[in-house]
Design a protein around this nucleic acid. Structure first.
Lengths: 338, 338
DNA sequence: CTGTTAGCGCGTTCAT
DNA sequence: ATGAACGCGCTAACAG
């Protein structure tokens, strides 16, 4: 039960009565250059010793590792894990292996993981910025590695991005509410800062409503975990428009959860007292009261496309900065039909 | 914009006009053995070159990597990501780095990742078996690495486990329902197979009810995504006990979601028509109708304890097989108060 | 206090 | 068709 050292390529060579070169050749697909006899001996030796080449040594030798680093700010976010599926699928197809790092939105951990990934010679990184704090995202420019961002851009920094077509999505959402006959709309978001996704969604919301002068357009920012702030915002919005049909658009899934909790606290029912529409699909959307209308992102495709792009860069087959946008899909439920 | 090679320790040594040994010493905390002058030169050179030691080379040289592999069957499961937080916190404290691998419940991917982790010389692995298929779990015995299981055991294989005290939890849940005056209870689970957690929960359920002869005890197995099957099971259970107060216990969070959907489909309201209690806390539990009573697992602590245990093994400071069980906490909501 | 040297496991010339 | 020898970047003796 003592932990014996892993067998090395030399052990295999010895067991197969040959040199390491031949074993190395065997491993790298140059099997046709080997005699039938030798090949079998090697095959046998490998199986007998349960030998696996050390990726450490391999990576050290040749420069490439076929590793792609993943930086995720908040793995608790359902959006992120869904994107992850697409990422993994693509990695697999392209012959890469993803290294998942969850920074938990802490700056020092991001730095730590970034160093780690570089130390492991990852050939590129995919940054899932959903839920990521601005500062964390901004610091990312440093890494001179092939990098592609998911969801959000770094201001003033040309970099590949793949994410939602925010304008299309917000327009679709807003028009749906108008069609449903809502007369006052509140766009609720986390602090806009320089976060392009939030700003774009809000802009499209405003642009759309500019075409419908009869409808009241409001917007507000709130911190995610300030329950009281959300309560007040919603309560006041509701009070300000007594007698009108009003609805709230929540700018992302995490916020939608908080909004729903808030409405419950202050005793407002979505679908009857107030309309509710949230960005990002939620597995429980149909179960919450009369159901919550959502704008679903094609998360899997987004993840897949991100890897495709980073691989293009790694291969050097494309050097133009790309911005790849996917359309959202409105899923109508009870919360938007008064 | 050509990708220049990363600076090596030799580059640093050259820039600091010294040998690599001193640089190596500088990096490994033996700074007190260096002259003030030299130390500053090295420090300067490192900063100037933005040098990071190659973990590949380091790992190759000394046998240890301070890496812990994580195998997760289904990262989509909220339980898993919550456990992940505890794991990462513990890793950080102990000076390890977690390598997260999501197998998506596919056998070949598990094999792939297992090989990968071993190739990277991870010093131990933590297997989050929540949602893992039995076959996948069973194959895990092979790896002769320090390993600790989360949530579920491998039948007939002595291995560290950390998870829920299923007996305590199921007993608590069952007694709660009895106290609430329910007269017929259905324990609903995914196929029991040899999965100890499911069997233990069911056993405790039965054992508890054995002490209350007046209460009807039933149990059923169902496949997670067979909607029709769940519908039938619930409908028949409801029909079978007309006029009685009845409740369903769902054996895990993923199933609770399906049960709630099913009840909605067949038009039964939890809290009024039927009671509902689910293992695993859900972020949306309070929002679904009158709220769903859950049995919350201390996920963070479970993850943390798992790493503690694997580290103990790595350090060789403990060789006894441990089974560490944590108590669940009942969170009462509307679904269990008729 | 500091530098020289010998491998860690592997891929890769370069000879045979 | 096969093997010997060198070096990837680093640490750990071992000198000095």
């Amino acid at each position: 039960m003592s932990k014996l050292p892993r067998p090395t390529i030399s052990d295999v060579a010895k067991a197969a009565k040959t040199g390491k070169t031949s074993v190395s050749r065997y491993l790298n697909g140059e099997q046709n250059l080997l005699s039938e006899d030798l090949r079998l001996r090697i095959e046998h030796a490998i199986a007998a010793l349960d030998y696996r080449p050390s990726l450490m040594a391999q990576g050290l030798k040749r420069g490439r590792t076929r590793l792609i680093g993943l930086i995720i700010a908040d793995i608790t976010n359902p959006y992120s894990v869904n994107v992850l599926s697409g990422i993994e699928a693509a990695c697999r197809e392209k012959g890469f292996t993803p290294l998942v790092c969850n920074t938990n939105n802490e700056l020092d951990r991001e730095q730590h993981y970034l160093d780690l990934l570089r130390s492991y010679q990852v050939e590129g990184i995919v940054v899932n910025a959903v839920g990521m704090r601005e500062e964390a995202l901004n610091r990312l420019q440093q890494s001179a590695l092939p990098m592609v961002l998911i969801d959000r851009k770094i201001p003033d920094f040309a970099c590949d991005v793949v994410g939602l077509d925010n304008t299309q999505a917000a327009t679709t959402a807003t028009e749906h509410l108008i069609q449903q006959g809502f007369e006052a709309l509140l766009f609720l978001s986390e602090p806009l800062g320089t976060v392009n996704t939030r700003r774009e969604r809000l802009s499209a919301f405003r642009a759309t409503l500019a075409r419908y002068p009869g409808v009241v357009a409001e917007s507000a920012e709130t911190v995610l975990h300030e329950a009281a702030q959300i309560d007040n915002t919603l309560r006041q919005f509701h009070a300000r428009h007594r007698g009108m049909r009003k609805a709230v658009i929540s700018a992302n899934g995490a916020l939608t959860l908080q909004v729903a909790r808030s409405l419950k606290r202050i005793g407002l029912h979505w679908g009857s007292d107030i309309g509710l529409l949230g960005f990002d699909e939620l597995e429980w959307a149909e179960l919450a009261g009369v159901g919550i209308t959502t704008l679903k992102q094609p998360t899997w495709q987004i993840g897949y496309a991100a890897v495709e792009q980073v691989v293009r860069r790694i291969d050097g087959s494309d050097n133009t900065v790309r911005e790849q946008l996917f359309s959202g899909e409105l899923i109508v439920r009870g919360s938007t039909s008064l």
